[in-house]
Design a protein around this nucleic acid. Sequence first.
DNA 1: ATGAAAGCGCTAACAC
DNA 2: GTGTTAGCGCTTTCAT
Lengths: 346, 346
Amino acid sequence: MPKRRNAPRISDVARESGFSVATVSRALNPLTASAVSPEARRAVEAAAEVLGYRPNEAARSLRTNKSLIVGVVVPDIANPLFPRMVRGIDDVLDDANYSSLLANSGGDPAKADKAIDRLLQRGVDGLIIATANLEDRRPSVLFDSNVPVVLLNRRTYDTRVPSVTAAGSRGTTAALTQLVKDGHSNITVLAAPQHTSTGWERLRDIEGAAAKRLGRTLPVVKATAVSESAGYEAIRDLLESGDSVPTAIVAANDLLALGAIRAIRERNLRVPQDISVVGFNDMPFCDRLDPPLSTIGFDHYKMGAEAARMVMNMIAGDVKPKSVRIPTVWIPRASTAVCRDASSRV
Amino acid sequence: MPKRRNAPRISDVARESGFSVATVSRALNPLTASAVSPEARRAVEAAAEVLGYRPNEAARSLRTNKSLIVGVVVPDIANPLFPRMVRGIDDVLDDANYSSLLANSGGDPAKADKAIDRLLQRGVDGLIIATANLEDRRPSVLFDSNVPVVLLNRRTYDTRVPSVTAAGSRGTTAALTQLVKDGHSNITVLAAPQHTSTGWERLRDIEGAAAKRLGRTLPVVKATAVSESAGYEAIRDLLESGDSVPTAIVAANDLLALGAIRAIRERNLRVPQDISVVGFNDMPFCDRLDPPLSTIGFDHYKMGAEAARMVMNMIAGDVKPKSVRIPTVWIPRASTAVCRDASSRV
DNA sequence: ATGAAAGCGCTAACAC
DNA sequence: GTGTTAGCGCTTTCAT
């Protein structure tokens, strides 16, 4: 049961072409091919073609200390937010002849850490980490060790380490502007846990927008996780609490918003007629949901692609690329409407 | 700009522990650890711990001809069908200390082939291919070369190569039974292209179920691709053709079904009141769409996990694992209803 | 039970 | 412009 199908080695190509292994190596490497005579190059290429020669990456990797692989750590590839990012990453890496080694942390920081260890042991040339918590020190440690690393979607407190994140404030301000224009004043924020930059920044963005558009703060309900069920539970509790029912809910995340909608409907209230709901992320099929979800979106693919470009630059020697923010945009759909209270008042 | 942070090598551990590199190697490998004295083992483990030693995978890989990596080729990770499969794969591989190298083909057979080449060159120990077309020969060639390979979701004509696919007939029969019971007799099939096993089998399943439940064949409309827009175009053309409007459409795929729904609504017809629509796959959030999509589903995660288990077995020496079929189940939701014609007739 | 030493296939000095 | 050769860090005979 031979594993590697006695693949041709560089020495086979050398024999077949009549040149030495060194010349073969040079001829086949685009960066050094210029140091080889055209005739030698042709002979080598022909021989390689005939034999179906493919350099052994493990040997090359051992020798050069480069693996042409970038490690990608995500909480869960099955979370609809990530596949497009990963696709963006992959497309960019592909163009540079790189591949991506994927690891799921399942949302567990310890598992994320283990995944990073393993990726590093595998000799990845760089790391894209989408699992960072705000107080996470690992990215800083990696950065200080000169490991090419870029943070995706979430960042840490340490702004030195390069990141690609969504610039939520613009989209959020637009959303709140619309809500206010539509007569909503009883707006509740459905926040995500505050240990990630996304959860934290989103709450700050909403508060900032509220200060600007309403001149006051908004009541906040905090979900215990970023999931449909956490959103459901938070809003179910709110509606059961006897507090005044909001006319609009601005959620930190589409999944949270979906949970909120379920809780609202369970109380026999309607979206958007009774309560408007706004999400964040514009995850796939948001526009086909019932109701089509108004949300604050950004280009997931581009975010991933940008992160990949940044690691590639770091791998190429750019020690400190500057962090990138992906713009967000308000996408009004059918989960938001003019406030009933406001219109009846008119 | 040193890439590998002068990581400790096995010789460092040897010096630190006072044993030879051979003993260190044996002590650290679970399979050979028994051949080492307990004291040596303890000393080695302590030294490795102190130094933070991690074996260099490239070197190990070069020596052993194993990479602990499985290549995974999918058409597009951003297609909602795949993330859960990939998650299933990853979880199983993870348990065996394996990682997955992901490649997107973008639906292009030539790109899929290139991806396989690259994966092989990288020395993957096995391959999970989710991009196979029915007449695709590559998987057979790989199989014949003793490359551990398993086909995921789609298979080829060559039934020798192990595959994990959905067993559509049960779910499809249940769906058609319900449709017939609900009074539908004017049922049109929205088929996918027939060059993949999924497209081909789904059509056969539906035809088989129709023969069984209706004793006749059904009119078939073929989409030019497996996408929302292809489904839209096919049904738009059907509705514009002047042919009799079906009371139900059974699509080979959820995306196709979604496109069909869009086309139906564009003609100011309603789903399910005027036309019932059935999908296939039960992709994520199907239940939250407008309308919640009745579909034939199966366990995506399990399918991926099963494929991973099979490659692992093949890597371990099981030359010919038998193919697995994942059962499907009919999931009635709100895109199907009792046929209006039938009820008015009563 | 342990160690010495031979490579795995490749690249990069270094010589010519 | 080309060839010779020394390793990259590890596992695995083969001795002892």
